[in-house]
Structures are given as C-alpha cells and as structure tokens.
Design a protein around this nucleic acid. Structure first.
Length: 747
RNA sequence: GGGCAGUUAGCUCAGUUGGUCAGAGCGCAUGACUUACAUUCAUGAGGUCAUAGGUUCGAGUCCUAUACUGCCCACCA
C-alpha cells in the first residue's frame, strides 16, 4: 500500500478547506492551532510508517515519559512536550523515521492517594468499597483523566503517534511486566523476606528507600540506665531518641574495642520498663564516639538493630502494630501511639530512677513519608525484594553492575554530565528494592504463600493449585501490588514489544531508542531502573542519551505547588497566549539540569514573537504576488545577506545536535526579529518600492522566510505551519506530496 | 557527615573545548500612529561577570581558597 499517496489526497482537501486569512493584522492562535493540529493528524505524519519514503529513513525514537493518569497536565509536562516535540520535529524534518510514542502511567500509589482525596471531597468513603469495586472506580477515574491528558497534549502541539498510545495497565504491557518478574524469580533476584521496611502508618504501606524524605528535627536524646543484673549500683547508660521502643529491646550492644564496656560484655542487664533480662553483646557496627557508646538493640523497629540482631540471633520483639499502636509486648505502652508511649516512658523511667538525663534541642534526621509527611516507622514486614547487588544467575554481574557499566562505557550519555556522578554514587550505595506495596491500585503481585511449608513463590502464567515446593493445596495469594516504578521501569521496551501484527517489528526498528528526556528528580526512581531493566531484559540499553531538564519555578524561584497558589496551568496559557508562545518560553533560558524560571511576562514576549512571524510573513506574502520563483543573478551584497542566513542555519543546527536548545532558540529569535525583520525586510521594502533590483529583493525574502519558517517550526509549530500553508510559493504543486511544513526538509 | 550546583545589567537568566562574551527577555528613559506588525519602530542609560590569590600573551570561561544561597545523598542510635 502506498501510504504517501493516500495521505497526499486527504491533505489537498484539507488545505482547500483551510480558511484562515493571512490578511489579519494579528496572529490569532485560537482560530488556528486546533485546525493546524487536525491538518497534521490527517496527514498521518505523526506515524513514522506514513512518512514519505518511510522505509528508507533512519529510525529515531523517543518514548514519552508517561504522565500520571490521575490529573490534568501541569506546567512541568509543558517542558517535556516542548523539548521532546522539538527534537522529534527536528529529526522528522532531517529525514528520520521519527517516532514519539505516547502513553500514560497508572501511577499506583500516587493515583490511589489522589483518588481517595477526591472521594473524600465528594463525601464518599473508599472503605465501603471492596477490592473489586475500588479497582473499578479508580480504573474509570484514570480512563477519564487519560482522555483529558491526551487532549491537552494535542493542544500543546505534541506530534506523537497516537496510534501507538499505551497505558501501563494495558494487558500486553502487564504481560511483559510479569515476564520480567518471572525472569527475576528464576534468576534468583526476586525474593520474599522479612526485613525492616519504611512503613507509613497513615497510608498503611511500605515504601522503597526513595519514597522516604529525611528532615532535620529537634528532638530529645534520653540517657537511660540499664542495671547490671546482680551487681549493685552498676549500670550501662544508653542514649536514645526513642525510649518508647525499650520494651522491644533484645540486647545492649557495645563496640568490642570500647574499653569502657569490655567488662560488661556477656553480662545481663535489666531493661528498665518491663524489667526483662537482656544480654550485653559486642558488635563492630556500634560507634564508640556516639552518645554513650552503648546502643540499645530493637531488632523489630530499626534497620541497624535488625542487622545486629540477625548477627547475634537475638529475639525479635514486634511491639508496634501496623496501625501505629503498641501491643501487649510493649507492656505499659499497650494501646498507646508512639508519642503517647514516649511520654509515658519518660515518666516511668524518671519514676524508677533510670533516666539519667535528657539532652534537649537535640537535632537529628527523622524520616517522613514523602506524600503525607507522617513519620515513617521502620517495621518488620514480609515483602518482595529485587536483589540489586547479587550476581545474576550464570553471570558474574549484578543488576547494579549493568547500569554502572552502561554509563561508564559511555553507551549511555547523561546530559548534563555532572549527573553521572550522582548516578554512580546512588548505585554504589544501592539497596535491595522493595517492590511490594500494601495498596489496592496497581499491578497485583502474582506471589503465593504456602500455608503448609511457609514458603513463597511466583507464578505468572496461571493461578497455581498447589505449592511448588511441598504440593500442598493450602496456598494463599499475595494481596500486594507492584511499586509503580517496577512497571514504568520497563516502559521503553515494554511499549515497543507490546505491538502485534506489522508493528511487531517496532522493537527491532526503534530499540534502543535515542533519547530519554525527563526531569532530574526522577533519575533514580525511573531512569536508573529503566537502564537496569532495559539491559537485563533485552540485553541492550534502552536509550543512548538521557537529557535531564529542570523543575519549573515561578519568577521568585519558588517551586510551584497548589498550596502556594503559584501554579501555572499550561492550558490556560495556551488559551491566552498560544501553545507556541508557551513552548518557546519553556525552551529559551532552559538549560539541561537547571531549573526553569517562567513568568507571564516571558510568555507574553514570545506571543509577540509569534505575531512578529505572522506579520513578517504577511509582508513577504504581499510582496511576492508577482514573484516568478526563479533565482536571479545576485550582487555580492545580496550574496552576503544570504550568507548570513547560512551561518545562522549552521549555528542552529549545531546547537540542536548538541542538545543546546535554548541557544538554538535564541539564535533563531534574534536572527528572525533583529536581522531579518528589522534590517533585511526594511531594506528590501525600499528596493521593492523603488523597483530597484526587485527580483533579487523578492528572492531574498522568499529564501530567508522559507528557511526561517522551517527552522522555527520545531520550536513554534503552529504559527509556522499556518503561515506556510498560506504562502503558495512554499506549498508545491498539487501532485507533490510534501506540502506540509512538518515534513519539509531541514535547511 | 559526604557530594553537587549557583553567585553575570533593576528583575529572570544565557554565555560546553580560555581570545568580537560583556549578552537576551522583561523593566526603565526619550522620541515616533514610518500602509507587515503599537503584541510595533528608533535611540539610550546600566554590570570592576560574589571576594582574594594563581596559571596564561590573553579568563565570567581553567586552578586554589573564602563567603553567601540552593539542592541531593547518608542506618549515627
């Protein structure tokens, strides 16, 4: 089938019905943008298969970072649209088979939180819904938002291939995610284990390390005496910020080299709240110089303590329940929450003479839930973990090593390069990844627990009837879901692999993709995981370049947030100033890795620029009516003028190839406005009026405007295409296909 | 505790291999309804490129130190 021919027929019709007149003195984006978008959509050129000579083109692919399908887009999304669409349009014009693959993310935990808030607002209770009802309700909610997001992306001018749109919960995507889970399981990299995890008592789920934010807080350091058994007036003093966990203590640990305490090692002390007898042990992890040098060990409620506890086979006392209240094991604290128990503990300790002193104004780091700011409780839980540093079965490399190698060997380049250091540092200290979430929205973990032999196993293809170890029928399905990043981490290959039919070649054609353009704030959450999974699952890197953009700030450099009331709604901007103005404002002054400052003034400035393009084009259009399109003999002076254009073209192209988008945009802006409009047009105006070398003047205007429209198109696609369509000199004869600026060749 | 970034005109920021790099937008001042554009045009004011040293024929641009600002990472109880 000749796709090009088909599309050219439909174009012709559209152009005839394209009714915007270039006689208007002002560029009216509202009347034009949506029509232009429809024109592009009907051309089919967003789909790389339908580009002219598609087969001969070299592939160029960007996978869109899927926006969360739980809310409309915010200004940060505008940044990625502006940058990615710029790259895609540029490469398309350079003759590449450009694919920008769109999609949305179910965003597990994030969406569940947003949805619950929304329900609360409507006075509905999510607790009344059972698991299925809840899932269905959130599903509908995301479907609704997906539509909104899609429409917004179109309003921003995103030239992505909607026929390849994906959602992280699509059946075919989930299937691939499960295959990865199975592979990890078979390679011995997925395990279920009881570990200390970061637990948010409010959201009632565990998190990975990344969802925890440490904040400096003032607290009290309590110095508590543990009496040595059967020795009068002898004790070890321990410094702790959490006296409420004393009933969970299993030992007191000291450093084996600590001369002060060597004599006590092996002795027994009395824990001062419930008066249990616990041993004094020696462990090298204890810091001699901190506090008193003696550490109380609470294996169930502290990560280091758990480790030490494991080493010394200490009793694990889980005194705190998952609802945030203490249980009977906590003795007098049973039924209290953490703060009540802390208060009570100081009273008891004071009363029985165990509280030596308090250091108030003690500043320490406290972990908080990144979402609700609740204090994270380290809790013991059975969770699924991905082993990041364990060698992959049959190889001498770990998942971590795969990512380190790819960046070290320059197979993947991170822009700006300083983030490579950050990347390595994170990987050097990486921990096993907890991928279980105790929430209802997300991809269920196909994990099973045998009630008979107490073992866990993964079964992705079918629902198992028996335990794979002991054949017992008494097995229970896991109720946890996967961390969202587990699925989005597979996005580049999962999307491309998921297609059937003629598109089953997509993976082969477009993978590895070219660029991953996203915010630096999700370098660990997402980019690192995509690199790891990409290489682990396919043997190839997922993308060659990582371009990290900054966060959008307001003109006072404040982060935008709804609570501060300084958010800019990108679609409101599009409505007022046009998508082109917003996009240009987001590109100019925006350099990799640095935050972006945007203000209404700036956007207005580029709206004016769009108008400038419109009017300069009007002028050229008016003065080219009798232009025959032939190249006349040019004077040296005229050649010099065109030479200036060539120089600008070279410069802009170089900047774009080097990912210096801001400089490219600025150069174009300056050339178009202050060289072309202010100087060249003014001079040619005089010549045309005086009929002095008029043909040459017309030719110069024709060439420069044409090339400028092309170069400006990836930055400001709507106004440039609108003008292009209105100038018959640029839109070739009916029998030629490529009369859209979107596919005209880059100068 | 470790690490990173920033400090350039009133404001917000560009300036990647050291030599038209002292810039842009907005703002400001003055003038202009010049038939492409008042969402415009012309002209102009302004910065010892944080500070102190150093390398160099030559440094916002490289090195060292200092100061302030912001950010990231970390199991110091």
């Amino acid at each position: 089938m000749d796709l090009g021919k088909n599309s050219s027929r439909s174009e012709f019709k559209i152009i005839k019905s394209f009714s915007i007149e270039i006689v208007n003195k002002t560029y009216e984006h509202l009347k034009i943008e949506q029509k232009i978008y429809r024109l592009w959509e009907k051309s089919g050129f967003f789909n790389p298969d339908k580009l002219p000579n598609s087969r001969k083109r070299k592939p160029f692919c960007i996978i869109m970072p899927p926006p969360n399908a739980n809310a409309p887009l915010h200004i940060g999304h505008g940044v990625f649209v502006a940058l990615e669409d710029l790259m895609i349009r540029y490469q398309r014009m350079k003759g590449k088979r450009a694919l920008w693959l769109p999609g949305t993310d179910h965003a597990g935990f994030e969406t569940q939180v947003v949805f619950e808030k929304e329900m609360e607002k409507q006075g509905k209770s999510v607790l009344e819904m059972n698991r299925e009802e809840f899932y269905k309700a959130v599903w509908d909610y995301t479907q609704k938002n997906k539509k909104i997001v899609k429409n917004q992306l179109k309003l921003l001018g995103a030239s992505c291939d909607w026929s390849r749109e994906k959602f992280t919960l699509d059946k075919d995507i989930q299937k691939i995610v499960y295959e990865t889970l199975k592979k990890l399981w078979q390679d011995g990299l997925l395990y279920r284990g009881k570990r200390i995890v970061n637990y948010c008592p409010k959201h009632k789920t565990a998190f990975s390390e990344l969802e925890v934010k440490y904040k400096e807080e003032k607290g009290i350091l309590y110095f508590v005496r543990y009496k040595i058994k059967e020795q009068k007036n002898k004790w070890i003093t321990v410094a702790t910020t959490r006296p409420e966990t004393i009933p969970g203590d299993s030992a007191i640990a000291v450093n084996p080299k600590d001369k002060r305490y060597q004599k006590f090692v092996g002795k027994v002390v009395i824990e001062p709240i419930t008066k249990r007898e616990i041993p004094v042990i020696a462990d090298k992890e204890v810091d001699i110089n901190f506090g008193t040098g003696a550490l109380k060990i609470t294996p169930a409620h502290d990560a280091l303590d758990f480790e030490i506890g494991q080493r010394h086979k200490l009793e694990i006392r889980e005194t705190l329940n998952f609802d945030g209240y203490f249980n009977e094991l906590a003795g007098p604290f049973a039924g209290l929450n953490v703060f009540e128990a802390r208060k009570k503990s100081t009273q008891i300790l004071q009363a029985n003479g165990s509280l030596e002193k308090e250091k108030k104004e003690y500043i320490h780091q406290v972990s908080h839930c990144y979402k609700c700011n609740s204090i994270i409780e380290p809790m013991l839980m059975d969770q699924w973990f991905v082993a990041m540093t364990k060698p992959i079965l049959g190889k001498n490399k770990s998942l971590r090593d795969l990512a380190v190698e790819a960046v070290e060997n320059k197979k993947i380049r991170i822009i700006p390069s300083r983030f490579e250091k950050v990347f390595f540092h994170w990987l050097d200290n990486i921990k096993d990844w907890n991928i279980s979430r105790q929430i209802r929205w997300g991809i269920p973990i196909p994990g099973y627990h045998c009630q008979h032999c107490q073992k866990f196993f993964i079964e992705t293809e079918k629902i198992p009837k028996r335990c794979i170890y002991c054949q017992s029928k008494n097995i229970q399905k896991d109720t946890d879901v996967l961390d969202t990043w587990f699925s989005s981490g597979q996005w580049p290959f999962a999307t491309l692999m998921s297609f059937k039919g003629p598109r089953s070649k997509d993976f082969k054609t477009f993978y590895p993709t070219e660029v991953m353009e996203t915010g630096w704030d999700i370098l660990f959450f997402w980019v690192a995981r995509m690199i790891i999974f990409g290489i682990y699952c396919t043997g190839k890197i997922p993308f060659k370049v990582v371009y990290l953009h900054g966060l959008v700030r307001d003109k006072d450099r404040q982060k935008m947030s709804k609570s501060k009331g300084n958010v800019i709604d990108p679609l409101a901007v599009v409505e007022t100033y046009g998508a082109d103005a917003l996009r240009m404002a987001l590109i100019i002054g925006n350099t990799a890795g640095n935050d972006i400052v945007i203000s209404e003034d700036k956007i207005r400035g580029y709206r004016n620029f769009a108008n400038k393009i419109w009017n300069a084009s009007r002028f050229v259009s008016m003065n080219l009516k009798d232009f025959d399109g032939q190249k006349p003999l040019l004077s040296p002076k005229d050649k010099k003028i065109l030479n200036g254009l060539r120089k600008t073209e070279k410069k802009v192209t170089k900047y774009l190839d080097n990912y210096q988008f801001s400089l490219a945009g600025e150069s174009l802006y300056h050339y178009f406005w202050h060289i072309f409009a202010d100087q060249i047009i003014e001079e040619m105006k005089k010549r045309i009026k005086a009929d002095e070398d008029k043909k040459q003047a017309q030719y110069i205007l024709y060439i420069i405007l044409g090339d400028c429209l092309k170069m400006l198109h990836p930055f400001m696609p709507f106004v440039t295409e609108a003008v292009w369509q209105k100038l018959p000199q640029y839109t070739p004869k009916k029998n030629q296909k490529n009369n859209l600026l979107i596919v005209s060749p880059w100068p």
